[in-house]
């Protein structure tokens, strides 16, 4: 039974999800760093930059969820 579940594609799926989880951490760091930098220097363009960072994070979350349900 266990051998049926643990086949090569299951391991590949876990590797894909692990890589995407690492990427999620990276995307979170981007959001955090953007907030820190927009506090350090304010040039009147903080809102669009923060939106870009959030869109980037939500993109990473979406791909993680798609991978979780399609693989």
């Amino acid at each position: 039974m266990i051998l049926d579940i643990i086949n090569i594609w299951f391991i590949v799926k876990l590797l894909f999800l692990f890589a995407l989880a690492i990427y999620l951490i990276f995307a979170s760091v981007v959001v955090r760093q953007v907030y820190l930098m927009t506090e350090t220097v304010k040039v009147g363009f903080e809102f669009p930059v923060r939106i870009i960072a959030w869109v980037y994070l939500f993109g990473a979350i979406s791909v993680f969820l798609i991978a979780l349900f399609t693989l």
């Binding site: 594609w9 590949v12 894909f16 995407l20 990427y23 993109g59 791909v63 798609i66 991978a67 693989l71």
Partner: peptide, 12 residues
């Protein structure tokens, strides 16, 4: 399905 996710990872 793995090919599809691999493409998404590439774009990420």
């Amino acid at each position: 399905n793995f090919q599809f996710i691999a493409h998404l990872i590439w774009y990420l």
